[in-house]
Design a protein around this nucleic acid. Structure first.
Lengths: 126, 126, 126, 126
DNA sequence: GTGGTCTAGACCACG
DNA sequence: GTGGTCTAGACCACC
């Protein structure tokens, strides 16, 4: 789940981590009571400081999406209803952002859809 | 041109400004030798500090997209060839970024296209 | 009097102008009721904006060192007592600054005096 | 080393800091591989913003006089040869600047030397 | 704790 | 009015 994350410059790392995990949650690849990867594992996989991972986990915890107890693993503790709401919210926001960008670039609906068709396939092999 | 920009949290303002202006340039709504709005005007329109706008303009100037001289206005300085290159670059990067997000959320191509079809119309009236 | 001024970077021009004029006043090369060079002349001689010269003159005026009336020349209007005070103040401050710098560089009195002896002669020809 | 610095008005703080540190380096009170005080420490000692100190340190780093790495201390990185060159440069520039001022104030060599003799002793007790 | 960056506000020099 | 710079305060990532 974390292995797909490619960090971008300019956006705080802990925010990218939070967004990525939320996106994973709504994908239903991660289910309630699933175990979260350990902070240490994430930090070495991404090559970032453990503090930074801790910060992201802490925020997710404060939002009630994960639960952890000292010395123990973290688990996803969200119910199905909350997941649906989160999913709706994330999808809507991302699609909206997407449209804003391409409209600002002066493209119409047909152009955009054709681009998606093309590039979706091209990325398929990866 | 700047009036369409709605700032988001989490991403540095100056980066959002740079992206927005570049997107406007490739839309061909902004042409070579067009006058740029002054730093102060943009800063009051967006409710940010003039310095933040200055930083964005400075980077665009370093990239050769605009030209400034003290006491005078700033101008767009980009020819058609560079615009095409920039457009290609922006489209590719944005499509790629969004596809990563949508895939991470567990959506397939059909879902995304259907959502775009729907939301494109809904936003139309605005 | 203005012709000796060489502007340095990093210090506001109008401040350098003020200091230079004050130094000229205490040198007794400029006496009470002497005519000040016009703002325009100074601005062209130094290659700076007339506004900048105006700013310096305005401050000197506020301090009571020069007097000007619209459309007319400016004159030095300071009495001998004030000049003596100003002279004392400027000399003391400059010597102190000088000593601070060279002490911080770890030099002793003999070194400094020898340096002055040498460089004073070298500059003589200019 | 920083504790001797008394800030003056009119000259940018970061420039005063740079000059002061360079003067300390040539005095040989500061040696190669010496630890620099942290930005925060200097900023509280001088009562200025950490950012201003950061700017000075950044410039010194660009000039190759100090080396920094995030999360760790900063160190002086200058060899004896470079120190001698720097010393020569600083002395020459400072003497020249001060001589210009003293001459502009109408003082001759004897005046200046006598003043230095007097004031050097007076400051001695401090 | 460390160094580095982003945003904010005031000021400077110029047309 | 214009563009550019200096100082300030808060935040990020790292040790």
């Amino acid at each position: 789940m974390i292995e797909n994350l490619v960090l971008k410059d300019g956006i705080p790392i802990y925010l990218q981590l939070i967004m990525h995990i939320k996106q994973g949650i709504v994908s239903e690849n991660i289910k309630n009571n699933d175990e979260m990867p350990s902070r240490r594992m994430v930090s070495t996989m991404l090559g970032v400081n453990p503090n930074t991972v801790q910060k992201a986990y802490k925020i997710l915890e404060d939002e009630g999406l994960i639960a952890s107890s000292v010395g123990a693993k973290s688990y996803i503790t969200i119910d199905e209803n909350k997941i649906m709401l989160l999913k709706q919210e994330l999808i809507e926001q991302n699609i909206k952002d997407f449209l804003v960008v391409f409209k600002q670039m002066g493209m119409d609906k047909k152009d955009v859809i054709r681009l998606i068709e093309n590039m979706w396939e091209n990325e398929e092999g990866k």
